[in-house]
């Protein structure tokens, strides 16, 4: 099974998380909202699959390169 690692693209704060580990996601689903540069930026699932790891929580401040989630597909 292939894995897709979703990383934080930009410094900011996670303001909502829509899934939990083990959830199934579809391509284009909004995994979480990242507030950065006074904008709410959705982070999308790039593939259909299952979240095997979720490394973020609401209110967490994140930096580029940190892992948001890993999706098995």
């Amino acid at each position: 099974m292939a894995q897709e690692v979703i990383e934080v693209p930009i410094t900011g704060k996670i303001i909502s998380v829509n899934f939990k580990s083990g959830d199934a996601v579809k391509e284009g689903d909004i995994l979480c909202l990242l507030e950065s540069m006074k904008m709410e930026n959705p982070i999308l699932a790039p593939v259909d699959g299952t979240i095997t790891q979720l490394e973020i929580a609401t209110e967490q401040v994140v930096k580029p390169g940190e892992i948001i989630a890993i999706i098995d597909y």
Binding site: G28, S36, M39, I43, L44, P46
Partner: peptide, 26 residues
């Protein structure tokens, strides 16, 4: 600023969910 960068970001994500073009567009 920053509306057009935001437009690019939204369209970029729509075309390819892996894309995060905001900083490139800024």
């Amino acid at each position: 600023v920053p509306m057009s960068a935001r437009v690019v970001q939204v369209m970029g994500q729509k075309a390819n969910p892996r894309n995060f073009l905001l900083m490139h567009a800024m």
